[in-house]
Amino acid sequence: MAKKPDNLSFEQALVELEQIVANLEQGNVPLEQALKQFERGIHLVRASQTKLSQAEQNVQMLTKDSDGDAQLVDFKSQE
């Protein structure tokens, strides 16, 4: 049984989504199965979007200074 999309890591969901797209693009999947795979893909996309939004919020919180303004720092200067 496949894991719920919410229980997969972002990377696992992306790999599974790529597999679903490849299967559907081949065009040899029966209609009923294609619809189930499409539905699974939609759930994977939504779960992944949620994880990306949460990650973005975490980054924004971590980069705010005491005044509440986001501080952008040149990535190369942190080496």
Results as ranks from 00 to 15, higher is better:
28 N>V: 00
45 V>F: 10
2 A>Y: 08
3 K>G: 03
15 V>Y: 10
14 L>Y: 12
42 I>P: 00
74 D>C: 10
39 E>H: 14
78 Q>Y: 00
28 N>G: 02
51 K>Y: 05
51 K>Q: 05
13 A>K: 10
21 V>Q: 14
77 S>L: 05
1 M>W: 05
66 S>G: 03
28 N>E: 12
12 Q>L: 10
12 Q>E: 13
19 Q>D: 15
5 P>V: 04
52 L>Q: 03
12 Q>K: 11
2 A>Q: 11
14 L>A: 14
30 P>L: 08
17 L>N: 12
11 E>F: 08
35 L>K: 13
53 S>I: 02
36 K>T: 00
9 S>I: 05
54 Q>A: 01
56 E>K: 04
68 G>H: 04
27 G>Q: 15
75 F>L: 06
29 V>Y: 07
42 I>E: 14
17 L>T: 13
6 D>T: 09
37 Q>K: 15
37 Q>T: 09
47 A>N: 02
50 T>D: 12
41 G>S: 11
13 A>E: 12
9 S>V: 03
31 L>T: 10
73 V>N: 07
7 N>M: 08
26 Q>I: 07
58 N>L: 06
27 G>L: 14
45 V>E: 11
79 E>I: 05
8 L>W: 11
20 I>H: 12
20 I>P: 06
73 V>Q: 04
18 E>I: 12
34 A>D: 06
64 K>A: 04
9 S>A: 11
69 D>I: 02
21 V>Y: 10
37 Q>P: 02
25 E>I: 09
69 D>A: 04
67 D>Q: 03
68 G>K: 03
26 Q>Y: 13
34 A>Q: 12
19 Q>S: 15
75 F>H: 01
8 L>Y: 04
